[in-house]
Design a protein around this nucleic acid. Structure first.
Length: 618
DNA sequence: ATCGGAAGGACCC
DNA sequence: TTCCAGGGTCCTTCCATC
């Protein structure tokens, strides 16, 4: 029977070390075979194997001399990298253990003793360690997971819950590095260098915490990095009852690798010594490296590269066949180099929504869905006061073939009409033109080329936690935001501005009302109501789930904004003061909480392209 | 040579 | 019996244009 390695268990995650991989892979293949998804994965793998063949034959054409020369060139490059190596800083990567699953197990302790996963039947987000023993893990469809583990309990995701815990964690981390960067809800990087310098001047009380939440017993942490991180993890546990793992090293790539070493509920510090670093990294399997996924691993493995040290051994060939950016990335990896500055995204690059459904070819249904997705996306644009200039339609056929169609608009807009028209035109074009088009199983709408509305300049600064580069970006933007709105043939959005302001006020009022009333009656007439306590403001909520969630979102935003303002209060630079004043007046405007988490990109792009992601054709 | 639009793909959480 | 998400980012290629 044919197989595809693309379906095999990803055993690179913690808790998956002692599995019978053969058996699990066989079960997965068995459960998947004949499915359209399986066939698509096979096609993908075959296509990649073809590309690999081409590469291998290219390699055969190189002379030994050529390879030797390339190796020397690679060595020179590695020497260069050595010279720029910065061992002076100490980064910490914090990673919550099986975060969503841990939150659910805390809420419902019965789940602690059974294999359990969080997610939908369609796809799992994460699993607890018991479930991992069966090979059940994130990004696995529910039905496969049940094949592997018939007793698996699947609980639905509740992001509002996770966000509350996440913000508690981030708050703690921010006390050690106010410029920390979060990456998703469950991960963060902090540069502890400055804190460690100041730490010796801290009093013992400042390093002392209760041993347990309500206990009088105390525990005092020392001043080393190791003890500092123990303190952070202890405080995280006190605040959330969830364990975290951590890694410390001189750069972020290494710190991230280290947090995996003693997971769960452990930490590992890598000495900032070149030999120790090289020794640490050399035996790691390439899949452990962030940025090397299934496809890249397949390509590298075809060159007999399994470990990071193999990358070094094959540096000559890699120099000859890889793109410079890929080669650069690989050299940095095998040299143990990584970023030593935490960068924050100033502004999101795109916003979109997509949804999967039972395959259909019904144009009316598809168009109506498309309209809904456009509405959802535009709503977000408007409530965040963002304009876009490009719209993209994404569709996936029942054969799992994905195609995207996009169109650049003649000007920046947040007009529902313009955007909906454009994306429906794209969709109709596909439906009309390709009569062979199989039924669809997914549709998505995304807008990109984003700009803040000019009047929201302070908000933009407000959302970038620390705006070192922000200022120039904003100035560039402000010049041309307003003017180019109406050099356009689409003139059907008069009055949009008014609606927008109205909506704005209503959000503002809702927030004020919510926070001022003791008992919040979100819904009165609906029979489908329930009561619960808001995890942020601790008030009783009455209403259906949607409305309760909405309240929590609003409340959470308020909380985050207040926290941020407090943080800014403590800083005293003139620029911050300016921001603070503006922010206070705008602070009731509450964009979705999720935008807050997107301020950091763990693989920061550098202008010279160094350390960027690299792509398929390697 | 260069720019930017459009399409596709890899990868991450 | 069924049967693999949704939010993103970045990169490359192709093609048209200057």
């Amino acid at each position: 029977m044919s197989r595809t390695t693309f379906l095999n268990v990803d055993d690179t995650k913690a808790g998956m070390e002692d599995l019978d991989k053969e058996k699990i892979n066989k079960l997965i293949q068995e459960a998947s075979k004949n499915s359209k998804f399986f066939k698509q994965q096979q096609r993908r793998e075959e296509e990649n194997r073809r590309r690999i063949e081409v590469k291998l034959s290219k390699i055969k054409s190189f002379s030994t001399f050529q390879i030797e020369q390339a190796e020397k060139s690679a060595d020179r490059y590695l020497n260069q990298l050595d010279k720029t190596r910065d061992l002076s800083r100490i980064f910490c990567h914090i990673d919550m253990d099986a975060f969503y699953a841990s939150v659910e197990m805390r809420e419902n302790p019965a789940l602690q003793h059974v294999p359990m996963a969080v997610g939908g039947e369609g796809m799992l987000s994460t699993s607890n360690y018991l479930a991992r023993q069966f090979g059940v893990r994130a990004a696995m469809p529910g039905f496969i997971a049940r094949h592997l583990c018939p007793n698996l309990v699947i609980v639905p995701c509740d992001f509002n819950k996770y966000r509350v815990d996440s913000s508690k964690v981030m708050k703690i981390i921010s006390e050690y590095d106010e410029n920390y960067g979060s990456c998703g809800l469950d991960e963060a990087f902090a540069d502890l260098t400055n804190h460690l310098q100041k730490r010796s001047t801290l009093s013992e009380e400042q390093r002392t915490f209760p041993k347990e939440e309500n206990s009088t017993e105390i525990i005092t942490f020392g001043i080393t990095a190791e003890e500092t991180v123990q303190e952070i993890r202890h405080r995280i546990y006190l605040a959330t009852r969830i364990t975290a793992s951590a890694g410390m090293a001189c750069n972020m790539r290494l710190a991230k690798l280290c947090s995996d070493i003693n997971k769960p509920n452990g930490q590992y510090q890598l000495e900032s010594n070149v030999n120790v670093i090289l020794n640490f990294i050399r035996n790691l399997p390439i899949r452990k490296i962030k940025g090397i996924g299934k496809v890249t691993a397949l390509h590298l493995e075809s060159l007999q590269i399994q470990t990071v040290n193999d990358i070094y051994l094959k540096r000559g060939i890699l120099k000859l066949i890889e793109y410079p950016s890929t080669f650069d990335f690989l050299m940095r990896v095998c040299n143990g180099c990584g970023s030593t500055t935490i960068e924050h995204d100033d502004l999101q690059k795109s916003i979109g929504h997509e949804t999967t459904f039972n395959g259909t070819s019904d144009s009316l249904q598809l168009i109506s869905l498309c309209r809904d997705l456009a509405k959802k996306t535009v709503d977000e644009l408007i409530s965040d006061r963002i304009l876009c200039k490009r719209v993209t339609l994404k569709i996936k056929t029942v054969n799992f073939e994905i195609l995207t169609r996009s169109k650049t608009l003649s000007s920046y807009t947040d007009s529902l009409n313009i955007i909906t028209d454009k994306v429906i035109t794209l969709l109709k074009h596909e439906l009309d033109q390709d009569l062979e088009l199989p039924a669809l199983r997914l549709m998505g709408v995304r807008v990109s080329d984003l700009k803040m509305k000019s009047s929201d300049l302070p908000i933009l600064q407000f959302f970038s936690k620390k705006s070192t580069t922000t200022t120039t970006t904003i100035n560039e933007n402000t010049h041309d935001i307003i003017e180019d709105i109406d050099d356009d043939d689409d003139d059907d959005d008069e009055g949009e501005e008014e609606n927008l302001n109205e909506e704005f006020l209503s959000i503002e009022n809702q927030y004020n009302e919510d926070c001022n009333s003791k008992l919040i009656h979100i819904d009165d007439e609906n029979s489908n109501t329930s009561t619960t306590t808001c995890p942020v403001c601790q008030k009783m909520l009455l209403g259906d789930n949607d409305k309760i969630n909405k309240h929590i979102d609003l409340c959470l935003n308020g909380e985050m904004i207040r926290t941020t303002i407090k943080e800014q209060d403590q800083q005293t630079s003139p620029q911050t003061n300016y921001n603070k004043r503006i922010n206070l007046t705008q602070s009731k405007v509450t964009p979705p909480a999720k935008r807050q988490k997107r301020k950091f990109n763990t693989t920061p792009q550098q202008t010279n392209g160094i350390d960027n992601y690299f792509s398929k054709h390697i």
